[in-house]
Simulated scan of single mutants.
Amino acid sequence: MEALLSQFTFLSDQALQDKNFDPSTIEDLMKLFEIESYKAWAAAELEQDQELEEAEAAMEQAENYLESAMESAMDEFRRFEEELERMSRDEVDSLVQTAESARKMGNLMEKAASVASKRYIEAALNSATASMKSAWRGISSGKVHPS
């Protein structure tokens, strides 16, 4: 483009000094300016298209990375959630076992207390019966002791 400007300057000077100057030479130069402008415009447009493609590729790469990071985070969350559920289930199972053991122990203690109570009642009845028999024998033999 600079060469064309130099040529234009040279032809302009020549047109001012030479009365026989052919104006069609400037027209030819102007056509070269037009062609050169279109070439520069096409090159700029091509460069812009390439930059757009590069930007789109970078954007797609960033989207893929973000999607991968989100999938990874969701997988991590799912694993955490599953582990938390497993721990909760284990805790509930442990509590259920403890409650079942306490219930069985309570049942055993109730049975033991019931057996002990029956034996105590039987012992008390036997003692009362023995006391009554002894007292009855004392009365029937006529040996009553004054108190």
Results as ranks from 00 to 15, higher is better:
residue 1 M to F: 07
residue 1 M to T: 09
residue 4 L to A: 11
residue 4 L to T: 02
residue 5 L to S: 06
residue 5 L to F: 11
residue 6 S to H: 01
residue 9 T to H: 02
residue 11 L to T: 04
residue 12 S to H: 02
residue 12 S to M: 07
residue 13 D to N: 05
residue 14 Q to I: 00
residue 18 D to P: 10
residue 18 D to M: 04
residue 19 K to R: 15
residue 19 K to A: 10
residue 21 F to A: 12
residue 21 F to N: 08
residue 22 D to M: 09
residue 23 P to A: 04
residue 24 S to C: 04
residue 26 I to S: 00
residue 27 E to H: 14
residue 27 E to F: 11
residue 28 D to M: 11
residue 28 D to N: 06
residue 28 D to Y: 07
residue 29 L to N: 01
residue 29 L to T: 10
residue 29 L to P: 00
residue 31 K to E: 11
residue 34 E to I: 13
residue 36 E to R: 03
residue 38 Y to C: 10
residue 38 Y to R: 15
residue 39 K to P: 01
residue 42 A to V: 04
residue 42 A to P: 02
residue 42 A to D: 06
residue 43 A to S: 07
residue 43 A to G: 03
residue 44 A to E: 05
residue 44 A to S: 09
residue 45 E to Y: 00
residue 46 L to S: 07
residue 47 E to Q: 10
residue 48 Q to K: 12
residue 49 D to F: 09
residue 50 Q to A: 05
residue 51 E to T: 14
residue 51 E to H: 08
residue 54 E to Y: 10
residue 55 A to T: 13
residue 58 A to W: 04
residue 59 M to T: 14
residue 59 M to L: 10
residue 61 Q to M: 14
residue 61 Q to I: 13
residue 61 Q to H: 14
residue 64 N to L: 15
residue 66 L to D: 15
residue 68 S to N: 09
residue 70 M to I: 12
residue 72 S to I: 08
residue 73 A to V: 12
residue 74 M to W: 14
residue 74 M to C: 01
residue 76 E to W: 03
residue 76 E to M: 08
residue 77 F to D: 06
residue 78 R to M: 05
residue 81 E to G: 03
residue 82 E to R: 09
residue 83 E to W: 00
residue 83 E to N: 07
residue 83 E to K: 09
residue 84 L to A: 14
residue 84 L to G: 07
residue 85 E to A: 08
residue 88 S to T: 09
residue 89 R to Q: 01
residue 90 D to H: 05
residue 90 D to W: 00
residue 90 D to V: 07
residue 91 E to C: 05
residue 95 L to F: 08
residue 96 V to E: 09
residue 99 A to D: 05
residue 99 A to Y: 14
residue 99 A to R: 08
residue 102 A to R: 08
residue 106 G to K: 13
residue 107 N to G: 04
residue 107 N to S: 09
residue 108 L to T: 15
residue 109 M to A: 10
residue 110 E to R: 04
residue 110 E to Q: 08
residue 111 K to Y: 03
residue 111 K to I: 12
residue 113 A to K: 05
residue 115 V to R: 13
residue 115 V to Y: 11
residue 116 A to F: 12
residue 118 K to P: 00
residue 119 R to Q: 02
residue 120 Y to I: 06
residue 121 I to L: 03
residue 122 E to P: 01
residue 123 A to C: 00
residue 123 A to L: 03
residue 124 A to H: 01
residue 127 S to P: 02
residue 127 S to M: 05
residue 129 T to Q: 07
residue 129 T to F: 00
residue 132 M to H: 08
residue 132 M to P: 02
residue 134 S to L: 15
residue 134 S to K: 13
residue 134 S to N: 14
residue 136 W to D: 04
residue 137 R to L: 05
residue 138 G to C: 02
residue 141 S to I: 10
residue 142 G to R: 06
residue 142 G to C: 11
residue 143 K to C: 02
residue 143 K to T: 15
residue 144 V to A: 03
